[in-house]
Amino acid sequence: MNKIGRIILYALLLLHLVITGYPFVWMTISAFKDNKEYFANPWGLPSEWKFSNFVDAWNQGISGYLFNSLYITVFSVAGLLLVATLIGYYLSVRPFRGSKVLLGAFFLGMLIPVHSTLIPLFTMANATGTYDTFWSLFLPYIAFNLPIAVFLSYTFFQSIPKDLEEAAVVDGCGIYQTFFKVYFPLAKPILATVTILSFFNIMNDFVFPLVMVSKESLKTLPLGLMMFKGNFSANYSLISAALVITTAPIIILYTFLQKYIQKGVVAGSVKG
């Protein structure tokens, strides 16, 4: 490629880099200013790098929301992995008439907008007393991530030669032991993919906490941030600090795992 062509391509790459990256740079710089300086000097570097916004944001609720998010996400992902591999395994080693139809139904599940289920889920939660409990987030998170997780684990178990199960049976393993001792440990790569995918889906979900939860101890970060913003609506630099605190863990995780994260998100991109 000639020189001019290269320069144009670089210019495009850099332009998009600035458009994508600069808002985060600006957000981070703003978080180190006090609110007066945020308004007086929106562009420049802070005259003095202050750390107090981070401390305040952390103490005014963000730490709690972060904890809620982690705890709900970890349990939901763990539940999802177990439930999805169980059925994926069974459909793969004990296919029956109708098992393909079942897989197809799960597959169709990816097309279902969550909004089409929200009103009944809300009335069901109220009727069963699960509104504002762990379950009202945990179960929907498993359900809406099941299609892709079942699909990925089924495909994976299909790729394992059938001899393996026969060998396990010869060694005296029943169907349960074969799964827990042989197949589940083998499924590590697919467990990693499903974890990455569903982790971000669940961690970032906004709509279920919005509808299903009202007590502080269940508000996850996305909803918590909105509450935080409502409480401190005029304090822009404090809000920026809250945004930095919630973004930083994800960015750090991403820096170390980017290859896997990109691969995982693409592998599951059927869900988007």
Partner: peptide
Amino acid sequence: VSGSFFMGPALLIFTGIIILPILMSMYY
């Protein structure tokens, strides 16, 4: 027993949280 053990949780959750609410929504 083994069928319900392996498929039960997924089927229950999928039907209870997605299929049933969609039908209920149509009914409502």
